[in-house]
């Protein structure tokens, strides 16, 4: 009996520990990885995040009939590893501390970003996005910038042709 009374005394000294969470906002620890935020104005459609995504929550599909590259992000599959934010060359993806992601339907967990594709000047096929080319062209030296608008396949042929001309082969 005395022991129990002591327990009550101890419990009263500690007081109420329950957090009033849904009614007051919760604090999140430093370095917590929550919802990845996509800044569409910065995205160049390079597909780096899709390549590195472990559960394939980020997928890229090239639709050549519409001329768009479609980024689909499915929150329901994301494991919040943050690798997409690590590899993004333009830091279009940032990891936020948002964790209140519960949803009543499946559709609300999805994000779709359509990025316009650009045609190869030589063969006329879609090969990459306009924004991706612009970013790459900004980093190149003079003289090779003209070759940016040509798809890798045509560029290979072009290089081979110029080599043949240089060596005088037939």
């Amino acid at each position: 009996m005395r022991k129990r009374l002591q327990l009550i005394k101890e419990a009263l000294s500690i007081g109420v520990v329950t957090r009033k969470y849904p009614f007051i906002p919760a604090e999140v620890p430093e370095g917590f990885r929550g919802l990845p935020q996509f800044d569409a104005s910065k995205c160049i459609g390079c597909t780096a995040c899709g390549n590195v995504c472990t559960p394939n929550a980020i997928t890229f599909v090239d639709d050549t009939s519409l001329g768009i590259r479609r980024l689909e992000y499915y929150l329901g599959r994301c494991i919040f590893c943050g690798r997409c934010a690590d590899v993004c060359p333009t830091s279009a993806i940032t990891i936020t501390k948002e964790f209140e992601l519960a949803s009543l339907n499946d559709r609300d967990l999805r994000l779709v970003i359509d990025i316009k594709l650009i045609k190869c000047q030589s063969c006329g096929r879609y090969f990459t996005t306009f924004r991706h080319l612009n970013t790459v062209a900004g980093k190149l030296q003079e003289g090779v910038v003209d070759l940016v608008n040509i798809c890798p396949e045509c560029r290979r042929k072009l290089a081979l042709d110029s080599l043949i001309k240089l060596g005088g082969l037939k």
Partner: peptide, 19 residues
Amino acid sequence: ALALGIVKQKVKFNHIVIG
């Protein structure tokens, strides 16, 4: 709490088209 109607849903579907 969302199922009980205490809080509102925060996430929603988004479709963005960029050039």
